[in-house]
Design a protein around this nucleic acid. Structure first.
Length: 592
RNA sequence: GGCCUCGUAGUUCAACGGAUAGAACGAGAGAUUCCGGUUCUCUAGAUAGGGGUUCGAUUCCCUUCGAGGUCACCA
């Protein structure tokens, strides 16, 4: 809430107490709807009962009091139970100046001494290339981290890489059998795609073996367990656990291919991590957590040697923590990872960006950490997001309906290229500038399309529509930004006065008021871990600007002071758009 | 079956418990002596059903129906 709305609220609260001895609820202020006159609105309904006044009478009394009491309030009107307050154009001129001179553009300065917040996202499997679902994950994680930083929090970006287990061994077995010493370099394949190929290859060959065994008269269930390839993979996992040198070397080689492939995608996508955690390094730590929990009686060991926790009080059932053979399970590793992060960073809170199919898992994880008595366990949050669907239905790797992340990103750039070239807007640009622009537009379209949707909701990704540069899209916003930049370039030769003597008319006030909302929107988005609020705000601002721009010539004015004022307003719109889009990981071009 | 999430125009998305539920796409009609025709304006269309709480409910509670997820000694 900006200064004036807080002052109106305070004044109203004091007035209600003084006049009618009403102390609650606290006055509710909202931006005035555009069809009514005014900028801020006080909702009167909660006070009509206690004051025994009609909404109109109460509104008129309070309106007069506010008008007399606060210099900024110049007029008011009461519609039904709503008191609409109009503020002076001097106030709005001053407010615009404040916004323009705010170096943080609505954000808050970092508090260096505070404990950081850890944001975990991405966290892929190392046997498959990234797909559309990972894109939503990465964009959300990156944007949430940016939002937290912009509002003054210290952030550590991490991911946990699932680099051990039977699935990795499958790719390794397949590579050893069918690889013939190929490498990503020799085949020209990106590292993660290269390894992913062998994972698919394993599955294909394994199924063939199962069929063969069945043909030999072995029952399907048994065949599935006895296929030589599977036995080999299991054997390899044991060798890995035992530290077998050759197996470890192959494992490291293949993982490093995958990582370099992922790294490439992350760079393309514009996301980054301060620290990677590897399950191969933290899974043992989880076991020590379990040991200490056993000592304090939080966990119990059963007769067969397995370790459990009873979470039925939290309606989460009983949960296994260690197998009877003493090996760890998924949740054991996450316990270890969480603890190790606390040791590394002493974070005050942690956000896990993970799909909603793991909601139960995180409820259990958080409940266990609380039982173990960790203070920071209260501040753990699972940013659970919905699945990305395609027009044809679910993405299924087996049916080949997975949208590969690298392919999609490239396709978006190509589409941006063909659209831009068709429009002929990029003529005269340097080749490098064009390439950068196509990337900005293509990726901007994709990122905006995904981030404008509330994370909790399942969403439909329509490739055709996302490529569309009209309507509620990233490029629509980018275009408005480019036009303003064009104005600014043009204005440089005009010697416009610096004067702020021009007061905003009602059209400009609408726009300033929207700019005035930005800090509150940013704050709300960070608090709710919801980039969609920022995305939708940017679109609203763009639409308002386009409407205003259509009506008001910025540079063609007899009075150059008017031009200067309108240019300043436009520039602040552009700056706010840049800031908002930047928090979504989207760049805005200077021209397009 | 238990638990969780979601159900809003034809479609994709909005709406701190507040005014006549907003946009976009698609369809139709129009505007611009313009600083960039990826712009703007107008027209048509929705809260799954039923209860409840409230001055006021898309929002909170209950219930029915529908969609998805989850309930592994998988990760």
């Amino acid at each position: 809430m900006s200064g004036i709305s807080a002052r109106i609220a305070d004044f109203t609260a004091a007035w209600l107490k003084d006049q009618y001895q009403i102390e609650r609820p606290a006055p509710a202020l909202q931006p005035t709807r555009k069809e009514f006159e005014g900028e801020w609105t006080v909702v009167l309904f909660p006070y009509t009962g206690p004051s025994k006044k009609s909404p109109e009478a109460l509104g008129n009394e309070l309106g007069s009091a506010l008008q007399n009491g606060l210099a900024e309030v110049v007029s008011f009107n009461v519609v039904k139970g709503f008191l609409n307050l109009a503020l002076s154009s001097e106030y709005w001129a001053g407010r615009l100046l404040e916004l323009r001179t705010d170096p943080l553009c609505g954000g808050r300065a970092a508090t260096e001494t505070a404990a950081p917040e850890v944001v975990e996202y991405s966290s892929p499997n190392t046997n498959k290339p990234l797909h559309l679902g990972h894109i939503r994950n990465n964009l959300l994680g990156h944007s949430v981290a940016e939002l937290l930083e912009a509002t003054g929090r210290k952030v550590v970006r991490v991911q946990v890489i699932n680099d051990r287990g039977i699935h990795i061994c499958k790719s390794m077995v397949a590579y050893r059998q069918f690889g013939k010493g190929e490498t990503p370099e020799s085949t020209g394949l990106k590292g993660d795609h290269f390894v992913g190929k062998y994972y698919v290859e394993f599955d294909r060959a394994y199924k063939l073996q199962v069929e063969q065994l069945k043909a030999e008269g072995i029952q399907e269930e048994l065949a599935a367990k006895q296929a030589p390839l599977l036995l080999e993979a299991q054997e390899m996992l044991l060798q890995w656990e035992a530290g077998h040198a050759e197996v470890r070397a192959l494992w490291q080689q293949m993982n490093s291919w995958v990582y370099s492939g992922f790294e490439h995608t992350y760079r393309t996508l514009g996301v980054r991590f301060d620290r990677n955690y590897y399950e191969s390094e933290t899974y043992l730590l989880g076991k020590s957590v379990v040991e200490s929990g056993l000592a304090t009686g939080v966990f119990e060991r059963r007769a067969d040697g397995s370790v459990w926790i009873d979470l039925s009080a939290e309606k989460l059932d009983e949960k296994l923590l260690l197998r009877k053979d003493g090996t760890s399970v998924y949740i054991t590793q996450d316990l270890g990872t969480a603890l190790s992060r606390f040791e590394d960073y002493g974070m005050q809170s942690m956000v896990y960006v993970v799909g909603n199919e793991q909601e139960y898992h995180f409820q259990v994880l958080f409940a266990i950490l609380k039982r173990l008595g960790y203070d920071w366990a209260k501040a753990l949050f699972h940013l659970s997001y919905g699945m990305v669907r395609l027009p044809e239905g679910k993405m299924k790797s087996r049916e080949g309906t997975v949208v590969d992340a690298d392919d999609l990103l490239e396709e978006m750039v190509q589409t941006a290229r063909s659209i831009s070239e068709e429009l002929g807007k990029t003529e005269g640009m340097e080749e490098a500038e064009k390439e950068a622009l196509y990337r900005m537009l293509g990726h901007g379209a994709l990122k905006y399309f995904i981030l404008k949707v509330d994370p909790v909701k399942e969403m439909l990704f329509n490739p055709k529509e996302s490529i569309d540069f009209d309507g509620h899209t990233g490029p629509f916003i980018q275009y408005a930004h480019a036009r303003i930049r064009s104005l600014e370039r043009k204005a440089r030769d005009m010697n416009l006065p610096e004067s702020h003597s021009v007061l905003p008319d009602t059209g400009a006030v609408v726009l300033i008021r929207q700019l005035d909302q930005w800090p509150a929107v940013l704050e709300a988005a960070a608090t709710a871990y919801n980039p969609a609020l920022v995305a939708n705000y940017a679109y609203e601002l763009t639409k308002l600007f386009n409407g205003w721009y259509q009506q008001n010539s910025v540079l063609n004015n007899e009075d150059s002071a008017v031009s200067a004022f309108r240019l300043a307003l436009s520039s602040e719109v552009a700056r706010t758009l840049r800031k908002a889009m930047g928090l979504l990981g989207i760049d805005c071009p200077e021209r397009m």
